[in-house]
């Protein structure tokens, strides 16, 4: 496996308040990494820095293997739009293609085909014309995952995607992620709060505690917890 993302001596924070200091982490292509840590530890700050949404205080983030920060599929922590947002599933998933459209004002055949594939991969192609506000919580999350898939062929970053999902929808959602990771070779970084074995489905863990971020194998981390 080759390195797709490397963080070198990365420090993150806001003004004087340093959240993560001197992190050195390396993500390989095809990794499924869970990011864990207490509330306010800096998990969301870390992924936002990787996405280029915030600037590091110091250090570097290197994107490799043709990856660019605008071509990472991102599933934000909360669904920003309220449940009554007027939009069809297709309108939402198409917006994932904006990162590789340049200044083109309209979606072309290529983007529309890409969206069809994303919807089909997640088994929700029958929802394309449906209104977002009419969907269940699990379906909405899949639609937002499809939007992230439209943005990338290499890496997904998910910020607590299981929030607001019931147990069945959560298991179904994780099964989908595992399939994407194994069958399509997508590298996945996922923030999670749940420390039960069911949720820690990745092969590696980034544990953030008191400003330091370290990477360990999932099985070793689970051993540490016992």
């Amino acid at each position: 496996m080759s390195t797709i993302l490397e963080l070198k001596k990365l420090s993150l924070g806001f003004g004087e308040n340093k959240v993560i200091s001197n992190a050195n982490l390396s993500i390989e292509s095809g990794d499924f990494v869970c990011i864990v840590g207490a509330n306010g530890a800096g998990k969301s700050t870390l992924v936002k820095a990787i996405l280029g949404l915030i600037k590091p205080l110091s250090g570097e983030i290197e994107y490799r293997n043709g990856l660019a920060h605008t071509q990472i599929g991102y599933l934000p922590q909360e669904t920003r739009p309220d449940n009554n947002f007027p939009a069809t599933v297709e309108e939402i998933v198409l917006s994932g293609c904006l990162g590789h459209m340049g200044w083109k004002p309209f979606y072309c055949h290529k983007e529309k085909q890409h969206v069809k594939r994303s919807l089909k991969t997640l088994g929700i192609n029958d929802l394309a014309g449906r209104s977002f506000m009419d969907l269940s919580g699990g379906q909405k999350q899949k639609v937002l995952l499809a939007r992230s898939l439209s943005a990338t062929t290499k890496m997904l970053i998910l910020d607590e995607p299981s929030n607001n999902l019931d147990h069945k929808s959560r298991r179904d959602f994780y099964r989908t992620l595992k399939t994407l990771n194994r069958e399509r070779g997508l590298t996945i970084l996922m923030i999670t709060h749940d420390l039960d074995a069911d949720d820690l489905i990745g092969n590696k863990i980034i544990a953030i505690k008191e400003g330091s971020a370290r990477m360990v194998a999932t099985k070793d981390y689970l051993e540490e917890l016992k």
């Binding site: 949404l53 990472i72 991102y74 934000p76 990162g99």
Partner: peptide, 13 residues
């Protein structure tokens, strides 16, 4: 549309 629906995501792409 993208900014109105989800500003963080729009920024990320």
């Amino acid at each position: 549309f993208a900014i109105t629906f989800d500003e963080d995501f729009a920024k990320s792409v």
